[in-house]
Amino acid sequence: MIPETLKTSLQARVASAITAREAAVDVMKELQAHYGWLTDEAVQEAAALLGLSPLQVEELATFYEMIYRRPVGKKVIHVCDSISCWCADCDKIIQYLKDKLGVGLGGTTADGMFTLVPCCCMGMCGDSPAMSVGGVPYGRLTPELVDEILEAERHKP
């Protein structure tokens, strides 16, 4: 169940859209922010808000890279593996992250803090290798910098 205030604001978002569907991505993102991932319940709530069937929401939810239809950690680490980061040896950073967090790609740390997933080009090519943690982008990664970032992110709200 989502809080009444969130529901009201989402209803307003849907009402302001030219067609209800247009607001679908916004609604899914907001519900994901609330639940941490887009739960089955959230899909059904989104459907109700948008006047769609749950399947119709699922068709969209499963298309997008940044909508999570499975439980994730408190913060999701998207580490870029596209060409510019590859040039900057992102493979090493990805391996370092795997080792440090003790998870494979797609895995969530035992403490439920981080989920590690590879992602497509983040537009951080000038600062490769790059990753984002909980939506915050970080570039020019080195193992030492990764340590610092994860430590800081662990304690940030």
Binding site: S82, C120, C121, G123, M124, C125
Partner: peptide, 12 residues
């Protein structure tokens, strides 16, 4: 929707 790998001009 600047997602072409190697492209980050619109962001900058």
């Amino acid at each position: 929707d600047e997602m072409e790998p190697g492209t980050y001009k619109d962001r900058v």
